[in-house]
Write a protein that binds this DNA or RNA. Structure first.
Length: 291
DNA sequence: CGAGTTTGACCAGCGC
DNA sequence: GCGCTGGTCAAACTCG
């Protein structure tokens, strides 16, 4: 499976917002920038700027477009790396699957017990040091129906059934990793025959977060993962006039955009958001292919 | 009082 | 057949 070919790697970085914001003669004392963009833009239309300002803005637009292109390339490279790693993992698992105690479903003993469960996936969840519960918060509702101490692991294994839908056949086994007991290993069997509870509540599964100083929304739309950086929003609502830098010159705006682009590419949170969006999309894609 | 959890009993498959 | 093991059941219990 080649994820790079099926994932839309284009990034919606709200460049249009940047452009509108940049084109407008911004009032430094403004607090609600987004809601005032429209009248400002109208002002711009009725009062054309000088040629120099237009040239600088065009240059800025080109530069931001280039940033977008670079980010797209980075995402493509990440997808390719993911594919490569995934391939290696598959190779490794196919060679060593029977040695992995967690893959007991592959064991002949368990294969004969029931028709082999067609959809088995695993998730590794790191828990806090003092957390002794066998709870993996994945958004679904689970009902625990049993607990056993298995031979290969002194930590008990908990058995859960999906209780969100009565007819849902999905089961989950949760056990602490024998190597690292702060890591919970959740093994899912079967597929949910109902939408994800959180997705049902918020179609598109948008996730809002803040990347450094930039508010961001990672959405998993049908067209592909989209990370939306809302550059029109101020850092915080209590920003006052004194703390806000002047953004009414192209130089300052360029600097700000460069700062944002730079901080985004270096920000681990941004990377995490990318990973979340991409793996979420891949997981979704994977499931849709299986159905 | 209902829903969820706990826990011992039970079942089925496998190896010897 | 027996023992071991993973998985499931269901009564008892807990909690809000």
């Amino acid at each position: 499976m080649d994820y790079s070919s099926c994932v839309d790697t284009s990034l919606d970085l709200n460049i249009s917002s940047i452009r509108v914001k940049s084109e407008a003669p911004v009032d430094a004392g403004r607090s609600g920038m987004a809601k005032e963009l429209k009248p400002t833009f109208m002002d711009f239309q009725t009062k054309p700027s000088s040629k120099e300002e237009t040239g600088a803005l065009v240059e800025e637009l080109n530069r931001v477009g280039e940033e977008n292109r670079k980010l797209t390339e980075m995402l493509t490279v990440m997808c390719e790396s993911y594919n490569a790693l995934r391939g290696q993992l598959m190779d490794y698992m196919s060679k060593n699957g029977e040695k992995d105690p967690q893959l007991m479903k592959n064991h002949p003993r368990n294969q004969g017990k029931k028709s082999l469960k067609d959809k088995i996936s695993k998730a590794y969840v790191r828990t806090e040091a003092g957390d002794t519960s066998l709870t993996v918060k994945d958004g679904y509702q689970w009902r625990k129906y049993g607990q056993k101490v298995t031979r290969d692991n002194p930590c008990p294994r908990a058995y859960f059934k999906c209780s969100f839908a009565p007819s849902c056949p999905v089961k989950k086994k949760v056990q602490r990793s024998i190597d690292d007991q702060s890591v919970l290993v959740a093994t899912y069997e079967g597929e949910h025959n109902h939408p994800h509870p959180s997705m049902e509540a918020t179609p598109g599964s948008n996730r809002s977060l803040t990347l450094g100083s930039v508010p961001c929304t990672a959405s998993l739309a049908s067209s592909g993962p989209t990370i939306t950086l809302d550059l029109t929003k101020p850092k915080s609502s209590n920003d006052d006039k004194s703390s806000k830098p002047r953004t009414d010159t192209p130089e300052v705006q360029k600097f700000l955009v460069e700062q944002m682009a730079s901080s985004l590419t270096k920000d681990p949170n941004f990377t995490a958001a990318l990973v979340a969006a991409i793996s979420g999309r891949m997981f979704q894609q994977n499931n849709s292919e299986k159905w």
